[in-house]
Computed example of a mutant assay.
Amino acid sequence: MTFDEVKPEHVLRALKEYDELGGDVFLAKYGFGRATDYLLVHDGRDYDSKAVLGAAQGHAVGRPATHDQFSGGRTGAAKVLEDLGFEVVRGSSRDVADVGPVEAQAAWAAAAREVLIDAARRYHSITTYRELADEVQSRSGVTTSQLMHHWIGDVLLQVARENAEKSEPALMALCVDARGRVGPGYAKAVEATTGAPPSEPDTHAAQERLRCHQFFGAPDLPSNGGRVAHTPQVARARDRVAKAAAPAMRPPQVCPRCHMAIPATGVCDQCG
């Protein structure tokens, strides 16, 4: 989403509204959570940067931007606000032990949804579990020293449940491991949200990725609707398996006299 119509005066109106309503009411009105990663600083006060930009869009065009239409990170709301001349600072991070596992998972799931929607809006784009884990901690401001595989699956399951509730394609399909494959949690999440596990998780994920690009409006999606594509690593592995399973092509027998191919009878038609 772009914010080409938003001017500094629209942001100032949003800030005034924030002050008049109070932070909690303002956030509830526009459907945003508390910003923990990037804060807008104005006249000595801190504001939730992403929510302010969403409201400013409403003042500019008559319809505010919702939380799932854009990201709040360094390349998202923070950059837009800085380009408009406002000061944006990095918020303080909190450890999962400080906020509790339930709040941490909720914050990570909200951030993961943002990251994956960003990927969905770029045709054939994917992210890795490691990249996602780092980005959700950065965006949410909630960090953990736990190994990624202990918690990222539960986060993606929350995202998958929200997708199912909203009749959306599975955003978790856009997240793969270093081999380009979906992890074991993918099939479990599909089963939990649809009632049946996929027979071929990587193929199922490839189909869901295309649906994500279509549903969330990737601007570079081809006019024909795009095509289902495995990750390059999975595609190469499937090609190797297919070649290994194909019967070996034997060179035809050739008559030593006329050098013509000998038929199945084993007798040259020319030389007898």
Rank of each mutant, 00 (worst) to 15 (best):
G266E: 09
P252Q: 08
P251A: 12
G62V: 09
P101T: 15
I262Q: 07
V136I: 15
Q105H: 12
A104G: 08
R90D: 00
C271A: 06
G62S: 07
E103M: 02
V228H: 14
A164I: 12
T2K: 13
F32T: 01
V61N: 09
M260R: 13
F70N: 00
T127M: 08
V99R: 12
T75W: 13
Q105D: 10
D48L: 05
T194F: 04
M260E: 15
D4V: 06
R240K: 15
A60K: 14
D269I: 02
A237P: 06
A119C: 09
K16F: 08
V176P: 03
G272P: 00
R74Q: 10
Q233K: 15
A229Y: 07
G33I: 10
D4R: 14
L210P: 06
G58Q: 09
E191I: 01
L171F: 02
E114Q: 08
V6S: 04
K50G: 08
L53T: 07
T36F: 11
S93H: 14
D202F: 04
A170T: 00
H230A: 11
A104S: 03
V159Q: 01
L156W: 00
A133T: 07
G76V: 05
D43I: 03
L156A: 00
Y30E: 12
V155N: 02
G76L: 01
V41D: 07
M148C: 08
L210A: 01
S138F: 02
D24P: 02
D154E: 07
V41M: 12
L84E: 01
R63L: 14
S145V: 05
V228I: 15
A107T: 00
D24R: 14
I117N: 04
S93E: 15
T36Q: 12
T75E: 13
G272C: 08
P232E: 10
S140F: 07
E114F: 01
G195F: 14
G185F: 00
G183T: 10
V89N: 04
E162M: 04
V88P: 05
Q105G: 11
C258K: 10
R139N: 06
Y38M: 05
G266R: 06
Y18M: 10
F216T: 07
V254L: 09
P198N: 13
R90S: 09
